[in-house]
Design a protein around this nucleic acid. Structure first.
Length: 224
DNA sequence: ATCCCGAGGG
DNA sequence: CCCTCTGGAT
């Protein structure tokens, strides 16, 4: 139906160039969260909201040492979990979310983590970002592109200026990239956003993707 | 001061 | 679209 315009072909080519450059630079993307199973990854990903993975990894040994299964976490005391995750920020909401999530896993799925996007998103504290991380990393299912604040910010560097909401960005990237690259691309771009293409202080002189960047040498974009 | 590998709600 | 939740690193 829609014919391919020259601009769309250029956008596609630039995205692929960036994707190849990211792959060369960051290798096989891996989740920086320590996890042994889908349950741990799910909890750790919820806890990672608005804080670094290093800080999450600092508290998960204690958390999973005491609450290793959904069943155990479902029966936990709110106050005790709050104490364990306190250093991560948003501790009240996070404690409440992982406890409620565990309770629903027990009630609805016999304590298993569902490998399904809609079922995951229906759980408390889990949005598309967290669900896509869990599906892609723990189950190897290419359900979508992980869109966090970094991906949202950096998609404009490759020309995705029309998309604004995370859903639109995800849809555009899913059309641009092959399914086997969805999760890897996201993780590489996120690493890039933290290490090189920092929001307020982009390290353009160290950037390996400079020749494909629309904003090379221009002031930082900031958030949004 | 600024921002973080978000989610939920208005 | 906006706002709130929060500690910690820089």
């Amino acid at each position: 139906m829609a014919k391919t315009t020259k601009k769309e072909r250029e956008l596609h080519q630039r995205a692929l160039n960036i994707s190849v450059g990211l792959a060369k630079t960051y290798g096989n993307a891996e989740c920086a969260l320590n996890h042994k199973n889908p349950f741990e990854l799910l909890v750790a990903t919820i806890l990672s909201a608005q804080c670094t993975d290093e800080r999450v990894n600092a508290v998960t040994p204690k958390l999973f040492g005491k609450y290793p299964t959904p069943e155990k976490l479902a029966k936990s005391e709110q106050e005790d979990v709050e104490k364990i995750v306190h250093s991560l920020g948003f501790f009240r909401a996070k404690a409440n979310n992982i406890r409620g999530m565990a309770q629903q896993l027990v009630e609805l799925y016999a304590g298993a983590v569902p490998a399904d996007l809609e079922q995951l998103v229906a759980l408390p504290g889990i949005g598309r970002k967290t669900a896509n991380v869990v599906l892609g990393t723990a189950f190897g299912i290419a359900s979508g592109v992980v869109v966090d604040t970094h991906v949202k910010r950096l998609t404009r560097l490759i020309g995705l200026t029309s998309s604004k909401t995370p859903e639109n960005i995800e849809r555009d990237l899913m059309q641009l990239l092959p399914p086997e690259e969805w999760v890897n691309f996201s993780h590489r771009l996120i690493h890039h956003g933290r290490q090189i293409c920092i929001a307020r202080r982009p390290q353009c002189t160290k950037c390996p993707l400079i020749q494909d960047c629309l904003r090379a040498g221009l002031p930082p974009l900031g958030l949004g």
